[in-house]
Amino acid sequence: METFVDISDVALRYTGRAGSQDTLAVEHLNLKVHRGDFVAVVGPSGCGKSTLMKLATGLHFPSAGVVRLDGEVVNGPVSIAGMAFQNPVMLPWRSTRDNVLLPMEVVDPHRRQIRTNRTKYKLQADEILASVGLEGAGDQYPWQLSGGMQQRASLCRALIHEPELLLLDEPFAALDAFTREELWCVIRDLHQEKQFTCILVTHDLREAVFLADTVHVMSARPGQIIVSRTIPIPRPRSIEITYETEFAELTHELRGHIAEARG
């Protein structure tokens, strides 16, 4: 399979304020993600997981090493990535539908078409909202929705422009266990259907094993990948598999690596 995201021997140093020491967030970071793959990155807190996301999208530049996306060296924000975070960051003055359509107002070629063809885009937004179980919520304001519904809408916003790369930074961390599992299935189905490349950063090992083809474990700061574990469980996976022995063994094994990484 063809490599889509290629992070090779990357270091990133955050320059602190004058006088304070620089922070080395990641060093000797190597990560390859094939097109259409779903990878999860787990690790102890503060290990530079979020830095990895910013590197992959060109929001930050490596101090050393190279980041390639689809064969091209990344030297500016990539303009094709969808992102979702723990905090859904919806704009409170826009309806949920208009929030979902926000990327369309920015990304070419849609930004030139959206004014003249509002109806088509509106339908497209309603369609994707329906696919995550938010039928009819388009006219409501995001602050009228529950946390889980806002997070669904945030996923729609990340996917509306059909990005080739989706980056998720602990998107379900603030939700209750049941809603979280529901949204795992939403992501699983969306990935199945649209076949985008996805990097999920998470603290939750069950989430990582359930969703990903490969789970990468990062070391403590400065972060690098210490273990990459392929998840051999066949797709499509149902929530039931999370209660099986193979699943438990995989999570347990990864937990061991994280304990090591924390040192």
């Binding site: 999208t57 990539v78 990535a81 107002e105």
Partner: peptide
């Protein structure tokens, strides 16, 4: 985060200002 979402879509500073 909002700024990241938009910049990862290739938004210019002016876009971020006008939209957000």
């Amino acid at each position: 985060e909002m700024e990241d979402v938009l910049r990862a879509l290739g938004a210019k500073k002016l876009d971020v200002m006008v939209k957000v």
